[in-house]
Amino acid sequence: MTASPRDPLLTAARILIVIAMVLAIIVGTLMVVLLPVMIVGQEAILKELAAETGKTLDWQTTAAIQAILILVAIMASIAYHWLRDLRRVIDSVGMGDPFVPENADRLAHMGWLTVAIEALSIPVGGIGQWLAATIKDATSDFGLSLGGILLALVLFILARVFREGAAMRSELEGTV
């Protein structure tokens, strides 16, 4: 059974994924570009922040911002790979051949990428909270999420489902 190439659900999913992939590239590139700017203009940024907040800020503040830039760049790269895997799974659905071992591998890969993003969320959340409190007496809600953990679990289970499906399909091949 081949899904129509004009299947509205698949088309909408593809469009959304491409947009999200472009956003991930933009965010990742922005972080990579901002990092050397932060390092070079460290003194000026500290002065400006100090003037804005009225607080004395030291090298720890810029180090924290740089750490967040690096971590967010890594997260954007992980998100890009996650979306690329999802697009390939959707493409295989469009071609009417989703129950293949490659999709099981992709889903398991996506599960590990989700775990990686969740793991990175912890230091990003921690540093973000510290920065928010240091600079503006604010809070940051970035951190580990139950939704992310559930998503990873669902992906690992779906990977198993697809592996079973691929095995069953392979058994059916050659059946007349």
Binding site: E171, L172, E173, G174, T175, V176
Partner: peptide, 12 residues
């Protein structure tokens, strides 16, 4: 044809 040439793995 797959059945005739003995290439089938199973027959329903």
């Amino acid at each position: 044809s797959i059945l005739k040439t003995g290439k089938a793995k199973a027959v329903r």
